[in-house]
Design a protein around this nucleic acid. Structure first.
Length: 307
DNA sequence: AATATTGCCAACCGCGAACCG
DNA sequence: CCGGTTCGCGGTTGGCAATAT
């Protein structure tokens, strides 16, 4: 592949010119051998000093590239694969507070990288802003997210948690048609730190054949657009924040997380079965349907410009 | 079946901050 | 303090796979 062995431009100020003038550096996808070399070197010498690390390890890569590969891919505690409902909710919540501070957001999703969260945001969230023909940073879109989508995500989390507590403990996949959708005030979602990854997609590989997946129906589209397909619509749409029991107190503007405990709130809402991924069979949930209520809500935002 | 389009994600780039001699 | 180097962040791109035409 041509681009894997190209000359790195010499004009960049922040690179070691002498070094780059003298050697060709690889770019593009990492090979298994390179991954192994990097992991092996870090295992023995630790990380940091990336430029010299790359040189000493014999990798024809920039320090930057090595750092990125390690942090986003090879690090043992990196979580890859399905972004859970809870993680999606947390991402939306934190983004509403901090904007595109991906690394800061990532700090509160243990094992998730800023790159992964950024990609999630761009591919999933921005897509819907585009569908609405509005800017992702517009008040209308933010309000729609805050007052419509996020509450529904919470509903989903609760429903899934309720379902999981009443079924076999090894259940990891929940068919939405079997989930008793609706309010259950006796259901609470345990808040506890997210542990290291559990699912098979986290297995190390360097063939780039897998990537971040979002739980099929935990995606925004699903939680937002598809409730009418469920028989008991009333229960689904009646979002009552007072019934949301994520944690003991809800002090955030959107009412889901503590906002006054910023650095501490690593908590990620989890299903009662530790490390059980709350995702459902997405077969019945298509991806791009706005229902009438969503459109009305959005129109209302446009008309009123207030909530 | 062939081609075009779209979605997704790993990796790259530029820039500013932090660090160091 | 200053200049060079390294680190880390956020934005962007390129390529592959899936889907649509």
């Amino acid at each position: 592949m041509d681009h894997q062995h190209v000359r790195v431009g010499l004009s960049r100020a922040a690179v070691n010119k002498n070094e780059e003038d003298m050697m060709d550096l690889r770019r593009g996808p990492w090979t298994v051998e390179e991954d192994f070399t990097l992991m092996n070197y870090i295992a023995h010498h630790g990380e940091g000093r990336w430029n010299s690390l790359a040189r000493c390890a014999g990798l024809k890569r920039t320090g930057k590239s090595c750092r990125l590969r390690w942090l986003n891919y090879l690090r043992p505690d990196v979580r890859r694969g399905n972004i859970t409902l809870e993680e999606q909710l947390l991402i939306l919540e934190l983004h509403s507070r901090w904007g595109n501070r991906w690394s800061k957001i990532a700090q509160h999703l243990p094992g998730r990288t800023d790159n992964e969260i950024k990609n999630y945001w761009r591919t999933r969230v921005q897509k819907h802003a585009k569908q609405l023909k509005c800017d992702v940073n517009s008040k209308q879109f933010k309000d729609t997210m805050r007052y419509l989508w996020m509450p529904r995500l919470v509903e989903r989390i609760q429903a899934a948690a309720g379902a999981s507590t009443s079924t076999a403990s090894d259940q990891a996949t929940i068919n939405p048609n079997m989930v008793p959708i609706g309010h259950n005030n006796n259901t609470s979602v345990t808040i506890k730190p997210r542990l290291i990854s559990e699912n098979s997609s986290t297995a190390a590989s360097s063939d780039n054949s897998f990537g971040t997946q979002v739980s099929p129906v935990s995606d925004l589209t699903d939680c937002c657009y598809n409730y009418p397909q469920v028989s008991n619509q009333q229960d689904c749409f009646q979002v009552n924040q007072s019934s949301i029991q994520l944690g003991e107190s809800l002090t955030s503007p959107t009412g889901y997380f503590h906002h006054d405990t910023a650095p501490e709130f690593q908590p990620v809402a989890m299903d009662h079965h530790q490390n059980t991924t709350l995702w459902m069979d997405g077969g019945n949930f298509s991806d791009n349907f706005w229902n009438i209520e969503d459109m009305c809500f959005f129109q209302q935002q446009l008309n009123n410009n207030v909530v």
